[in-house]
Simulated scan of single mutants.
Amino acid sequence: TSGLADPTAVAEIFLVEGDIQKAFVLDGVLTLVDAAHIIQHLDEEKPEGVINEAVRQLALADRILLNKCDLVDGPTLQEVQTRISAINAGAPIRRTVNSMTDMEFLMGIQAFSLDHASDIRGDLLRGSLNHRHDDRVGSVCLDVVGDVDKAEFDAWLQSLLRSRGSDIFRCKGVLAVSGFAHQYVFQGIHSVLSIASHRPWASDEERRCKLIFIGKELDKHDLVNGFMDCKLPVWSCE
């Protein structure tokens, strides 16, 4: 994305239009960032209820090219990268000059595939749990051992997206569902949601649920409490 582009409407089509899904694949959202000017755009004051477009583009990104790195000093570059990670903790950032990078970073992202949606890194989850920042847009991650009740989870997530869908830019997760041998994977853009059965849990694999939400004014405690109401207790044999 660049300029005033908002990829949300285009990306949503790939989640809901069956004919388009048969003919095309949405590989991912790539956002190009001007390292020399991004902070002033992130700090722009917007009217109440209006999301900063630069923040929205970063929040929706699957990969980020941090360009013009030769025009800023080291501390400024680190501040820029820290600000970006505070908004979108899950998107890899590649520093570039003149947007030069290898094609492997740009292509084959498969951000909307089941394998990618189920691949939520442990270091990302641990980092998000302890992260605090002042921006209205950020990431909330959950990593919980045990199973969820599918009906309870479906009802909670659908209710959440109905009431807060405009504020939740991206969400995805992998679930251990009680009574099912396969992983369940979900991903969404605003209120548009896709849920599918994925691979079986391995016999020596710990069943757990991993989720990430990226959006505006997310309340971590509300998300955790809502999710935990869907979770079944983990019984000990001791």
Rank of each mutant, 00 (worst) to 15 (best):
A5M: 04
A5V: 13
T8H: 03
K22I: 08
L26E: 12
L26Y: 08
D27L: 03
G28P: 00
L30K: 02
D34K: 09
H37P: 02
I38G: 06
I39A: 05
Q40V: 00
L42S: 06
E45G: 09
K46G: 09
P47K: 00
E48G: 08
V50S: 08
N52G: 03
R56T: 13
Q57L: 07
L58G: 09
A59I: 11
A59P: 01
N67L: 00
D73H: 14
D73F: 14
Q78T: 05
V80C: 09
Q81G: 08
I87D: 04
I87P: 09
A89W: 10
I93A: 01
I93P: 11
R95I: 01
T96G: 06
L114V: 08
D115G: 12
D119K: 12
I120C: 10
I120F: 06
G127F: 02
L129F: 15
L129A: 15
H131R: 10
R132A: 03
D134K: 03
V137M: 10
S139F: 15
L142R: 05
V144Q: 03
V148E: 08
A151W: 00
A151F: 02
W156Q: 06
L161I: 09
L161E: 10
S166E: 01
S166C: 05
D167W: 08
I168H: 04
I168C: 10
C171Q: 04
V174R: 10
L175N: 08
A176D: 03
S178N: 10
G179I: 15
F180H: 06
A181D: 08
Q183E: 13
Q187Y: 09
I189F: 05
H190I: 12
V192T: 14
H198K: 14
R199D: 01
W201T: 01
A202W: 07
A202V: 01
A202S: 13
D204R: 12
E206L: 14
C209I: 11
I212Y: 00
F213G: 00
E217Q: 14
L218R: 00
D219Q: 10
K220Y: 04
H221A: 04
H221I: 00
V224M: 11
N225M: 13
M228Q: 06
M228N: 12
D229L: 14
P233K: 01
V234C: 04
V234T: 03
S236L: 12
